[in-house]
Design a protein around this nucleic acid. Structure first.
Lengths: 214, 214
DNA sequence: ACACTAACTTAACAACGTTAAGTAAACATT
DNA sequence: AATGTTTACTTAACGTTGTTAAGTTAGTGT
Protein backbone atom coordinates (compact mmCIF):
# COMPACT_ATOMS: atom_id res chain seq x y z
CA UNK A 1 0.00 0.00 0.00
CA UNK A 2 2.59 2.54 1.10
CA UNK A 3 0.11 5.35 1.30
CA UNK A 4 -0.48 4.82 5.00
CA UNK A 5 3.24 4.99 5.58
CA UNK A 6 3.54 8.22 3.68
CA UNK A 7 0.74 9.78 5.72
CA UNK A 8 2.37 8.67 8.91
CA UNK A 9 5.66 10.10 7.74
CA UNK A 10 4.00 13.39 6.89
CA UNK A 11 2.33 13.53 10.25
CA UNK A 12 5.53 12.86 12.12
CA UNK A 13 7.19 15.55 10.04
CA UNK A 14 4.85 18.24 11.29
CA UNK A 15 5.19 16.71 14.74
CA UNK A 16 8.91 17.28 14.46
CA UNK A 17 8.36 20.81 13.21
CA UNK A 18 6.33 21.49 16.33
CA UNK A 19 9.03 19.96 18.52
CA UNK A 20 11.77 21.98 16.85
CA UNK A 21 9.87 25.24 17.20
CA UNK A 22 9.01 24.44 20.80
CA UNK A 23 12.62 23.59 21.57
CA UNK A 24 13.96 26.82 20.17
CA UNK A 25 11.52 28.94 22.19
CA UNK A 26 11.87 26.77 25.26
CA UNK A 27 15.65 27.08 25.34
CA UNK A 28 15.55 30.84 25.65
CA UNK A 29 12.23 31.45 27.39
CA UNK A 30 11.60 28.41 29.57
CA UNK A 31 8.39 26.51 30.09
CA UNK A 32 6.27 29.30 31.55
CA UNK A 33 7.61 31.77 29.03
CA UNK A 34 6.41 29.86 26.00
CA UNK A 35 2.77 29.73 24.94
CA UNK A 36 1.15 27.24 22.62
CA UNK A 37 0.14 30.15 20.43
CA UNK A 38 3.72 31.25 19.99
CA UNK A 39 4.86 27.76 19.09
CA UNK A 40 2.07 27.57 16.53
CA UNK A 41 2.85 30.99 15.12
CA UNK A 42 6.45 29.98 14.61
CA UNK A 43 5.52 27.12 12.29
CA UNK A 44 2.57 29.02 10.77
CA UNK A 45 -0.09 26.64 12.05
CA UNK A 46 -3.11 27.41 14.14
CA UNK A 47 -2.63 26.93 17.88
CA UNK A 48 -5.02 24.01 18.02
CA UNK A 49 -3.08 22.08 15.40
CA UNK A 50 -0.60 21.20 18.13
CA UNK A 51 -3.29 19.29 19.97
CA UNK A 52 -3.53 16.84 17.12
CA UNK A 53 0.01 15.75 17.96
CA UNK A 54 0.25 16.32 21.71
CA UNK A 55 -2.34 15.99 24.45
CA UNK A 56 -1.35 19.22 26.14
CA UNK A 57 1.47 21.66 26.75
CA UNK A 58 3.14 19.48 29.33
CA UNK A 59 3.26 16.44 27.07
CA UNK A 60 4.86 18.51 24.32
CA UNK A 61 7.67 19.73 26.54
CA UNK A 62 7.99 16.39 28.27
CA UNK A 63 8.73 14.87 24.89
CA UNK A 64 11.42 17.50 24.39
CA UNK A 65 13.04 16.59 27.69
CA UNK A 66 12.71 12.91 26.97
CA UNK A 67 14.87 13.51 23.90
CA UNK A 68 17.43 15.40 25.93
CA UNK A 69 17.53 12.75 28.58
CA UNK A 70 18.33 10.12 25.96
CA UNK A 71 20.91 12.44 24.39
CA UNK A 72 22.58 12.84 27.78
CA UNK A 73 22.93 9.08 28.03
CA UNK A 74 24.44 9.05 24.55
CA UNK A 75 26.98 11.69 25.53
CA UNK A 76 27.87 9.63 28.59
CA UNK A 77 28.28 6.60 26.35
CA UNK A 78 30.50 8.32 23.82
CA UNK A 79 32.53 10.59 26.11
CA UNK A 80 33.24 8.63 29.25
CA UNK A 81 36.47 6.97 28.24
CA UNK A 82 38.48 6.32 31.35
CA UNK A 83 38.95 2.76 32.52
CA UNK A 84 39.39 3.72 36.16
CA UNK A 85 35.90 3.47 37.68
CA UNK A 86 36.28 6.51 39.94
CA UNK A 87 37.58 8.55 37.03
CA UNK A 88 34.56 7.43 35.05
CA UNK A 89 32.24 8.66 37.79
CA UNK A 90 34.01 11.99 37.87
CA UNK A 91 33.65 12.32 34.12
CA UNK A 92 29.96 11.52 34.35
CA UNK A 93 29.58 14.19 36.98
CA UNK A 94 31.36 16.81 34.88
CA UNK A 95 29.31 16.02 31.78
CA UNK A 96 26.12 16.20 33.79
CA UNK A 97 27.13 19.55 35.26
CA UNK A 98 28.02 20.86 31.85
CA UNK A 99 24.65 19.78 30.51
CA UNK A 100 22.79 21.51 33.32
CA UNK A 101 24.66 24.77 33.06
CA UNK A 102 24.40 24.87 29.28
CA UNK A 103 20.67 24.07 29.21
CA UNK A 104 19.26 25.66 32.33
CA UNK A 105 15.69 25.76 31.06
CA UNK A 106 15.69 22.12 30.09
CA UNK A 107 17.36 21.29 33.38
CA UNK A 108 14.72 23.21 35.29
CA UNK A 109 11.93 21.40 33.56
CA UNK A 110 13.56 17.98 33.74
CA UNK A 111 14.91 17.93 37.28
CA UNK A 112 13.59 20.90 39.21
CA UNK A 113 9.89 20.46 38.52
CA UNK A 114 7.46 17.64 39.24
CA UNK A 115 5.45 16.06 36.47
CA UNK A 116 3.16 13.71 38.34
CA UNK A 117 1.06 10.93 36.87
CA UNK A 118 3.28 10.27 33.89
CA UNK A 119 2.62 6.55 33.61
CA UNK A 120 5.16 4.58 31.61
CA UNK A 121 4.37 3.49 28.09
CA UNK A 122 6.07 0.66 26.23
CA UNK A 123 8.86 2.87 24.92
CA UNK A 124 9.62 4.04 28.44
CA UNK A 125 9.88 0.49 29.68
CA UNK A 126 12.44 -0.27 26.99
CA UNK A 127 14.45 2.82 27.82
CA UNK A 128 14.47 2.46 31.57
CA UNK A 129 17.46 0.75 33.01
CA UNK A 130 19.22 0.70 29.66
CA UNK A 131 22.52 2.57 30.13
CA UNK A 132 22.60 3.52 26.47
CA UNK A 133 19.37 5.48 26.72
CA UNK A 134 18.90 6.07 30.43
CA UNK A 135 21.42 8.45 31.98
CA UNK A 136 20.64 7.31 35.51
CA UNK A 137 21.21 3.69 34.55
CA UNK A 138 24.56 4.67 33.08
CA UNK A 139 25.55 6.31 36.34
CA UNK A 140 24.40 3.31 38.35
CA UNK A 141 26.41 0.90 36.25
CA UNK A 142 29.52 3.00 36.76
CA UNK A 143 28.85 3.01 40.50
CA UNK A 144 28.52 -0.76 40.46
CA UNK A 145 31.83 -1.08 38.66
CA UNK A 146 33.53 1.13 41.22
CA UNK A 147 31.93 -0.90 43.98
CA UNK A 148 33.00 -4.21 42.46
CA UNK A 149 36.52 -2.84 42.21
CA UNK A 150 36.40 -2.17 45.93
CA UNK A 151 36.81 1.55 45.55
CA UNK A 152 34.12 2.62 48.00
CA UNK A 153 34.22 2.40 51.77
CA UNK A 154 33.10 -0.94 53.10
CA UNK A 155 29.95 0.40 54.74
CA UNK A 156 28.68 1.64 51.39
CA UNK A 157 27.15 -1.47 49.91
CA UNK A 158 24.12 -0.18 48.05
CA UNK A 159 24.81 1.02 44.50
CA UNK A 160 21.39 2.64 44.35
CA UNK A 161 21.89 4.87 47.36
CA UNK A 162 25.39 5.81 46.23
CA UNK A 163 24.12 6.72 42.77
CA UNK A 164 21.38 8.80 44.31
CA UNK A 165 23.85 10.56 46.57
CA UNK A 166 26.22 11.33 43.73
CA UNK A 167 23.35 12.62 41.67
CA UNK A 168 22.14 14.77 44.57
CA UNK A 169 25.61 16.26 45.00
CA UNK A 170 25.95 17.58 41.49
CA UNK A 171 22.27 18.39 41.30
CA UNK A 172 22.61 20.47 44.45
CA UNK A 173 25.33 22.63 42.95
CA UNK A 174 23.67 23.02 39.56
CA UNK A 175 20.15 23.66 40.74
CA UNK A 176 21.24 26.22 43.32
CA UNK A 177 23.22 27.94 40.60
CA UNK A 178 20.28 27.96 38.21
CA UNK A 179 17.74 29.09 40.77
CA UNK A 180 19.77 31.37 42.98
CA UNK A 181 23.02 32.03 41.16
CA UNK A 182 22.00 35.58 40.32
CA UNK A 183 20.83 36.33 43.82
CA UNK A 184 23.00 38.99 45.42
CA UNK A 185 21.92 37.88 48.89
CA UNK A 186 24.67 35.26 48.94
CA UNK A 187 28.27 36.03 48.14
CA UNK A 188 28.56 33.19 45.65
CA UNK A 189 31.95 31.75 44.88
CA UNK A 190 32.59 31.06 41.17
CA UNK A 191 30.55 28.09 40.00
CA UNK A 192 33.74 26.36 38.85
CA UNK A 193 35.09 26.47 42.40
CA UNK A 194 31.87 25.21 43.91
CA UNK A 195 31.79 22.34 41.47
CA UNK A 196 35.40 21.44 42.19
CA UNK A 197 34.94 21.47 45.95
CA UNK A 198 31.74 19.45 45.75
CA UNK A 199 33.37 16.80 43.58
CA UNK A 200 36.41 16.66 45.81
CA UNK A 201 34.42 16.45 49.03
CA UNK A 202 31.96 13.89 47.73
CA UNK A 203 34.55 11.48 46.37
CA UNK A 204 36.68 11.79 49.48
CA UNK A 205 33.62 10.91 51.50
CA UNK A 206 32.81 7.93 49.33
CA UNK A 207 36.17 6.40 48.55
CA UNK A 208 38.01 3.82 50.55
CA UNK A 209 41.21 5.48 51.71
CA UNK A 210 44.39 4.17 50.03
CA UNK A 211 45.95 2.47 53.05
CA UNK A 212 42.89 0.31 53.68
CA UNK A 213 43.39 -2.98 51.87
CA UNK A 214 40.59 -4.15 49.66
CA UNK B 1 -2.45 62.67 66.67
CA UNK B 2 -2.74 58.86 66.89
CA UNK B 3 -5.18 58.67 64.04
CA UNK B 4 -2.45 58.07 61.52
CA UNK B 5 -1.14 55.23 63.63
CA UNK B 6 -4.56 53.61 63.87
CA UNK B 7 -4.99 53.78 60.09
CA UNK B 8 -1.61 52.24 59.57
CA UNK B 9 -2.47 49.51 62.02
CA UNK B 10 -5.74 48.82 60.25
CA UNK B 11 -4.01 48.68 56.92
CA UNK B 12 -1.37 46.26 58.14
CA UNK B 13 -4.15 44.15 59.62
CA UNK B 14 -5.74 43.55 56.25
CA UNK B 15 -2.27 43.10 54.84
CA UNK B 16 -1.78 40.31 57.33
CA UNK B 17 -5.17 38.85 56.46
CA UNK B 18 -4.05 38.68 52.84
CA UNK B 19 -0.75 37.07 53.83
CA UNK B 20 -2.47 34.50 56.03
CA UNK B 21 -4.96 33.55 53.32
CA UNK B 22 -2.20 33.38 50.73
CA UNK B 23 -0.07 31.22 53.00
CA UNK B 24 -2.83 28.71 53.62
CA UNK B 25 -3.56 28.29 49.91
CA UNK B 26 0.11 28.37 48.99
CA UNK B 27 1.03 25.57 51.38
CA UNK B 28 -1.30 23.10 49.73
CA UNK B 29 -1.46 24.36 46.15
CA UNK B 30 1.91 25.96 45.45
CA UNK B 31 2.62 29.20 43.65
CA UNK B 32 1.15 28.33 40.26
CA UNK B 33 -1.86 26.70 41.88
CA UNK B 34 -2.98 29.84 43.70
CA UNK B 35 -4.63 32.77 41.95
CA UNK B 36 -5.01 36.29 43.22
CA UNK B 37 -8.74 35.86 42.83
CA UNK B 38 -8.79 32.86 45.15
CA UNK B 39 -6.76 34.66 47.79
CA UNK B 40 -9.18 37.58 47.58
CA UNK B 41 -12.21 35.33 47.74
CA UNK B 42 -10.87 33.70 50.86
CA UNK B 43 -10.82 36.98 52.77
CA UNK B 44 -13.96 38.30 51.03
CA UNK B 45 -12.25 41.20 49.32
CA UNK B 46 -12.16 42.03 45.66
CA UNK B 47 -9.13 40.71 43.78
CA UNK B 48 -7.77 44.16 43.16
CA UNK B 49 -7.72 45.02 46.85
CA UNK B 50 -4.57 42.94 47.11
CA UNK B 51 -2.77 45.34 44.80
CA UNK B 52 -3.17 48.09 47.36
CA UNK B 53 -0.86 46.10 49.62
CA UNK B 54 1.40 44.25 47.19
CA UNK B 55 2.76 45.27 43.81
CA UNK B 56 2.04 41.91 42.21
CA UNK B 57 1.62 38.21 42.84
CA UNK B 58 5.31 37.58 43.12
CA UNK B 59 5.83 40.25 45.74
CA UNK B 60 3.04 38.79 47.84
CA UNK B 61 4.51 35.31 47.88
CA UNK B 62 8.04 36.65 48.21
CA UNK B 63 6.94 38.31 51.43
CA UNK B 64 5.61 34.97 52.61
CA UNK B 65 8.93 33.31 51.93
CA UNK B 66 10.81 36.16 53.49
CA UNK B 67 8.91 35.40 56.71
CA UNK B 68 9.77 31.73 56.48
CA UNK B 69 13.40 32.46 55.80
CA UNK B 70 13.59 34.54 58.95
CA UNK B 71 11.72 31.85 60.88
CA UNK B 72 14.23 29.27 59.71
CA UNK B 73 17.04 31.39 61.12
CA UNK B 74 15.13 31.62 64.40
CA UNK B 75 14.75 27.86 64.55
CA UNK B 76 18.49 27.52 63.94
CA UNK B 77 19.11 30.01 66.72
CA UNK B 78 16.86 28.29 69.24
CA UNK B 79 17.49 24.63 68.36
CA UNK B 80 21.17 24.33 67.52
CA UNK B 81 22.50 23.59 70.98
CA UNK B 82 25.64 21.54 70.58
CA UNK B 83 28.96 23.13 71.44
CA UNK B 84 30.93 20.93 69.06
CA UNK B 85 31.15 22.89 65.80
CA UNK B 86 30.76 19.87 63.53
CA UNK B 87 27.78 18.69 65.55
CA UNK B 88 26.31 22.16 65.17
CA UNK B 89 26.68 21.95 61.41
CA UNK B 90 25.00 18.57 61.36
CA UNK B 91 22.12 19.93 63.38
CA UNK B 92 21.76 22.85 61.01
CA UNK B 93 21.65 20.41 58.12
CA UNK B 94 18.97 18.29 59.73
CA UNK B 95 16.79 21.27 60.60
CA UNK B 96 17.12 22.58 57.08
CA UNK B 97 16.16 19.20 55.62
CA UNK B 98 13.22 18.96 57.94
CA UNK B 99 12.06 22.41 56.89
CA UNK B 100 12.26 21.55 53.21
CA UNK B 101 10.44 18.26 53.49
CA UNK B 102 7.72 19.73 55.67
CA UNK B 103 7.13 22.77 53.47
CA UNK B 104 7.80 21.59 49.94
CA UNK B 105 5.85 24.38 48.28
CA UNK B 106 7.63 27.08 50.22
CA UNK B 107 10.91 25.32 49.55
CA UNK B 108 10.16 25.17 45.84
CA UNK B 109 9.40 28.85 45.70
CA UNK B 110 12.29 29.90 47.93
CA UNK B 111 15.12 27.76 46.59
CA UNK B 112 14.06 26.04 43.40
CA UNK B 113 12.81 29.07 41.48
CA UNK B 114 14.48 32.27 40.38
CA UNK B 115 13.09 35.64 41.35
CA UNK B 116 15.29 38.04 39.44
CA UNK B 117 15.54 41.78 39.95
CA UNK B 118 14.61 41.79 43.57
CA UNK B 119 16.71 44.75 44.66
CA UNK B 120 17.39 44.99 48.35
CA UNK B 121 15.48 47.47 50.46
CA UNK B 122 16.60 48.83 53.82
CA UNK B 123 15.03 45.96 55.76
CA UNK B 124 16.87 43.45 53.60
CA UNK B 125 20.17 45.14 54.24
CA UNK B 126 19.57 44.87 57.99
CA UNK B 127 18.67 41.21 57.71
CA UNK B 128 21.48 40.11 55.44
CA UNK B 129 24.47 38.70 57.19
CA UNK B 130 22.71 38.75 60.53
CA UNK B 131 22.74 35.15 61.81
CA UNK B 132 19.62 35.77 63.87
CA UNK B 133 17.53 36.57 60.80
CA UNK B 134 19.54 35.19 57.91
CA UNK B 135 19.73 31.40 57.79
CA UNK B 136 22.70 31.40 55.41
CA UNK B 137 24.62 33.74 57.71
CA UNK B 138 23.92 31.38 60.59
CA UNK B 139 25.34 28.49 58.59
CA UNK B 140 28.38 30.48 57.58
CA UNK B 141 29.15 31.46 61.15
CA UNK B 142 28.99 27.82 62.20
CA UNK B 143 31.34 26.94 59.36
CA UNK B 144 33.76 29.62 60.50
CA UNK B 145 33.68 28.26 64.02
CA UNK B 146 34.45 24.76 62.77
CA UNK B 147 37.24 26.17 60.63
CA UNK B 148 38.72 28.13 63.52
CA UNK B 149 38.66 24.97 65.60
CA UNK B 150 40.71 23.28 62.87
CA UNK B 151 38.07 20.73 62.08
CA UNK B 152 38.25 20.98 58.30
CA UNK B 153 40.99 19.72 56.03
CA UNK B 154 43.82 22.16 55.60
CA UNK B 155 43.14 22.84 51.94
CA UNK B 156 39.65 24.09 52.78
CA UNK B 157 40.28 27.64 53.78
CA UNK B 158 37.28 29.51 52.44
CA UNK B 159 34.26 29.53 54.75
CA UNK B 160 32.07 30.81 51.94
CA UNK B 161 32.76 27.96 49.56
CA UNK B 162 32.37 25.39 52.34
CA UNK B 163 29.04 26.89 53.36
CA UNK B 164 27.89 26.83 49.78
CA UNK B 165 28.97 23.22 49.38
CA UNK B 166 27.21 22.14 52.54
CA UNK B 167 24.11 23.96 51.44
CA UNK B 168 24.28 22.36 48.01
CA UNK B 169 24.57 18.89 49.55
CA UNK B 170 21.39 19.06 51.56
CA UNK B 171 19.67 21.08 48.88
CA UNK B 172 20.50 18.37 46.36
CA UNK B 173 18.82 15.69 48.40
CA UNK B 174 15.77 17.76 49.31
CA UNK B 175 15.14 19.28 45.93
CA UNK B 176 15.48 15.98 44.10
CA UNK B 177 13.04 14.47 46.57
CA UNK B 178 10.56 17.31 46.10
CA UNK B 179 10.82 17.37 42.32
CA UNK B 180 11.36 13.73 41.47
CA UNK B 181 10.63 11.76 44.63
CA UNK B 182 7.37 10.46 43.20
CA UNK B 183 8.91 9.50 39.90
CA UNK B 184 8.83 5.75 39.41
CA UNK B 185 11.63 5.96 36.86
CA UNK B 186 14.22 5.79 39.62
CA UNK B 187 14.18 3.16 42.33
CA UNK B 188 14.49 5.70 45.12
CA UNK B 189 15.90 4.64 48.43
CA UNK B 190 14.04 5.97 51.48
CA UNK B 191 14.64 9.69 51.90
CA UNK B 192 15.94 9.07 55.43
CA UNK B 193 18.67 6.84 54.05
CA UNK B 194 19.62 9.28 51.33
CA UNK B 195 19.87 12.07 53.86
CA UNK B 196 22.00 9.95 56.19
CA UNK B 197 24.42 8.91 53.45
CA UNK B 198 24.71 12.44 52.13
CA UNK B 199 25.48 13.84 55.56
CA UNK B 200 27.98 11.11 56.26
CA UNK B 201 29.73 11.44 52.92
CA UNK B 202 29.87 15.22 52.99
CA UNK B 203 31.31 15.52 56.46
CA UNK B 204 33.83 12.79 55.83
CA UNK B 205 34.90 14.68 52.77
CA UNK B 206 35.21 17.94 54.67
CA UNK B 207 36.68 16.96 58.00
CA UNK B 208 40.30 16.69 58.89
CA UNK B 209 40.89 13.03 59.72
CA UNK B 210 41.53 12.35 63.43
CA UNK B 211 45.20 11.31 63.16
CA UNK B 212 46.19 14.58 61.44
CA UNK B 213 47.31 17.01 64.10
CA UNK B 214 45.75 20.46 64.08
C1' DA C 1 -20.10 8.60 -7.18
C1' DC C 2 -20.24 8.43 -2.16
C1' DA C 3 -18.98 7.83 2.54
C1' DC C 4 -15.22 8.07 5.60
C1' DT C 5 -11.05 9.37 7.89
C1' DA C 6 -8.11 12.65 9.85
C1' DA C 7 -5.22 16.76 9.73
C1' DC C 8 -6.15 21.19 10.33
C1' DT C 9 -8.90 25.95 11.20
C1' DT C 10 -12.15 29.15 13.33
C1' DA C 11 -14.53 30.50 17.28
C1' DA C 12 -15.18 30.35 21.74
C1' DC C 13 -14.73 29.29 26.92
C1' DA C 14 -13.17 29.98 31.47
C1' DA C 15 -9.46 31.51 34.10
C1' DC C 16 -5.50 34.25 34.78
C1' DG C 17 -2.59 38.70 36.32
C1' DT C 18 -3.18 43.30 36.13
C1' DT C 19 -4.81 48.25 35.18
C1' DA C 20 -8.09 52.26 34.80
C1' DA C 21 -11.71 54.49 36.59
C1' DG C 22 -14.88 55.23 40.08
C1' DT C 23 -16.86 55.25 45.08
C1' DA C 24 -17.27 56.48 49.62
C1' DA C 25 -15.71 57.47 53.94
C1' DA C 26 -12.35 59.48 56.95
C1' DC C 27 -9.40 63.21 57.48
C1' DA C 28 -7.26 68.11 57.02
C1' DT C 29 -7.96 72.96 55.93
C1' DT C 30 -10.20 77.16 55.56
C1' DA D 1 -19.51 74.34 59.16
C1' DA D 2 -18.19 73.71 54.30
C1' DT D 3 -14.71 72.27 51.22
C1' DG D 4 -11.02 69.76 49.30
C1' DT D 5 -7.80 65.76 49.74
C1' DT D 6 -6.34 61.37 50.76
C1' DT D 7 -6.95 56.43 50.63
C1' DA D 8 -8.73 51.84 51.12
C1' DC D 9 -11.45 49.56 48.40
C1' DT D 10 -14.85 48.00 44.17
C1' DT D 11 -16.45 47.42 39.41
C1' DA D 12 -15.35 46.78 34.84
C1' DA D 13 -12.37 45.74 31.60
C1' DC D 14 -8.01 44.37 28.82
C1' DG D 15 -5.01 41.17 26.95
C1' DT D 16 -3.24 36.66 27.46
C1' DT D 17 -3.30 31.91 28.67
C1' DG D 18 -4.43 26.55 27.92
C1' DT D 19 -7.89 24.05 25.95
C1' DT D 20 -12.37 22.30 23.70
C1' DA D 21 -16.25 22.09 20.29
C1' DA D 22 -17.60 22.51 15.91
C1' DG D 23 -16.59 23.05 11.38
C1' DT D 24 -13.76 22.48 6.87
C1' DT D 25 -11.31 20.24 3.41
C1' DA D 26 -8.56 17.17 1.10
C1' DG D 27 -7.22 12.55 0.25
C1' DT D 28 -8.53 7.52 0.64
C1' DG D 29 -11.36 3.15 0.34
C1' DT D 30 -15.45 1.10 -1.64
Amino acid sequence: MGVKERREREKSETRDKILDAARELFVSEGYEGVSMRRVAEKIEYSPTAIYVHFADKKELFLELCHQDYARLAEVFQSSVMSTDPIERLKQIGMIYIDFGLRNPNHYKFMFMTSHPAHEMDEEDRETRGNPEQDAYAFLKRAVEQAMDAGRFREELRDAEVISQTLWASVHGVISLEIAKGCDAWVDWRPIKDRVAVMMDVTFRGLERSPQEGQ
